[in-house]
C-alpha cells in the first residue's frame, strides 16, 4: 500500500473510532464499543510480549485481574482518588510481573505456557480465598469516580479513557519495534540461542517486555474496575480473557502494529453477538475454540499477512524492507 493511502486509511479509521459513541444508536451498543476497545488494549498489550518475543502467555488475565482488584481495593478500602489508585496499582502489578517473569522466562515454549496458566489459577485462588480483603467469590463493589453521570455518559467517558490507553499501547509497540530493544526482542523470537550468543541480554529483555506488557494490561484492568463497578473473580481471572488476547492477536497478525486491534474488532463484537443471540448457553466457548483451532491450523500468521499476500500478488514487486522470518528468507535464498 502506498504510504499516502495508508495514512488516509489510518485517519479515516481513527475518525470513525472517535465518532463511534455519537454514532451508536443505543446504550447497549455503546457498552459493546467500550468492551471492544478494552479488548483491543488487552490484545495490543499482550502483543508487546507475544508479538516481539514469541512467548505465548495464556495467563495475562492474571495481570488484568490484579490491576482491577488493586485499583478497586485502593479506592474502596484506602479511599484513594481513582487516578493515583489506577497508576499505583498498575505499577505494582508491573513490578510483580517482572518478579514472576524472572522465574517464568527461564523456560521456553510449552513450559512457559504452563506457567502462565498456573499464574491465573493461583491469583484466582488467592483472591477467592482472601475473603476478608477481597470479598471472596461474591466479588468486590467499586464506586464509580463519576457519580454525577448516568450510565450512557459513563460509558462515553470510559470509551475515551480506554481509547487513550489504546493509543498509548500502540505508540509503545511502535516505538519499541523501531528500537534496539525491539530488535533484540525479535532476535529472541527468531532464535533465542543465537541472539544470546550475539550478546543480546535475553533474560533482561524478556523480563522488561513481560513487565511492560503487564503494565498496560493492569491499567486496562484498573479502568475496567472503575467502569464496571463490580468485580467477579471468576471473570477477571478467567483463562478465557487471557485466551481472547491470544486469539485476537493471532487472528490479526502478531507481527503487525494493528494486528491485535484488528483481531479485537472481529472477536469482541462476535463474542458479544454470540452472547446475545445464544443467551446464557455455553456454546460461545465452542465458537471461540473453533475459531482458535481454525486460526492455528490455517492462518497462524494472521489476517494482515494473508491479505497483504493477496494484494501483493496483484501488483509489481516493491523494493522495500519487509519484515520476514529467518525461515522465509532462507527459503527465498534457496529459490
Amino acid at each position: 500500500m502506498r504510504s499516502g493511502s495508508r495514512y488516509g486509511l489510518l485517519a479515516l479509521g481513527a475518525a470513525l473510532v472517535i465518532a463511534y459513541p455519537w454514532l451508536a444508536p443505543n446504550t447497549y451498543l455503546l457498552y459493546a464499543g467500550v468492551l471492544t476497545v478494552m479488548y483491543a488494549v488487552l490484545a495490543t498489550s499482550w502483543n508487546l510480549l507475544g508479538g516481539f518475543t514469541g512467548y505465548v502467555s495464556l495467563g495475562h488475565s492474571a495481570f488484568f485481574g490484579l490491576g482491577a482488584y488493586g485499583t478497586g481495593l485502593l479506592v474502596t478500602k484506602a479511599d484513594w482518588p481513582w487516578i493515583p489508585a489506577l497508576l499505583v496499582s498498575a505499577l505494582v502489578v508491573a513490578v510483580f510481573a517482572g518478579l514472576v517473569g524472572v522465574a517464568a522466562v527461564r523456560v521456553r515454549g510449552a513450559s512457559f505456557v504452563i506457567v502462565s496458566i498456573a499464574l491465573v489459577s493461583m491469583m484466582n485462588l488467592l483472591v477467592q480465598g482472601w475473603r476478608s480483603l477481597t470479598g471472596g467469590s461474591t466479588g468486590l463493589r467499586v464506586p464509580t469516580p463519576f457519580r454525577e453521570l448516568n450510565r450512557g455518559e459513563s460509558h462515553l467517558v470510559f470509551f475515551y479513557l480506554f481509547l487513550v490507553l489504546l493509543v498509548l499501547a500502540l505508540l509503545t509497540w511502535w516505538v519499541i519495534s523501531r528500537s534496539r530493544f525491539g530488535s533484540g526482542l525479535k532476535a529472541i523470537r527468531e532464535d533465542e540461542d543465537k541472539a544470546e550468543s550475539l550478546g543480546v541480554p535475553t533474560t533482561a529483555f524478556k523480563v522488561v517486555a513481560y513487565g511492560l506488557s503487564a503494565l498496560f494490561v493492569a491499567l486496562a484492568g484498573g479502568l475496567y474496575a472503575l467502569w464496571f463497578r463490580s468485580l467477579d473473580p471468576i471473570f477477571v481471572f478467567s483463562i478465557l480473557v487471557g485466551s481472547y488476547m491470544v486469539l485476537m492477536s493471532l487472528l490479526g497478525g502478531v507481527r503487525h502494529l494493528f494486528g491485535p486491534l484488528l483481531g479485537a474488532l472481529i472477536v469482541a463484537p462476535a463474542g458479544e453477538y454470540f452472547l446475545v443471540a445464544l443467551g446464557e448457553s455455553q456454546i460461545h466457548l465452542t465458537a471461540t475454540g473453533v475459531l482458535l483451532v481454525l486460526v492455528v491450523m490455517f492462518m497462524p500468521e494472521g489476517i494482515i499477512p494473508a491479505v497483504a499476500k493477496l494484494v501483493r500478488r496483484f501488483r509489481p514487486p516493491e523494493a522495500s524492507i519487509r519484515e520476514e522470518t529467518a525461515e522465509q528468507r532462507s527459503k527465498e535464498a534457496v529459490a
Partner: peptide
Amino acid sequence: VLLTFGLALIIEGLLGT
C-alpha cells in the same frame, strides 16, 4: 498448546450445552 487449548474450549462449550 493453542490448538489443544481450542479443543478444550470446544469440549467445555459442548458439555455445557
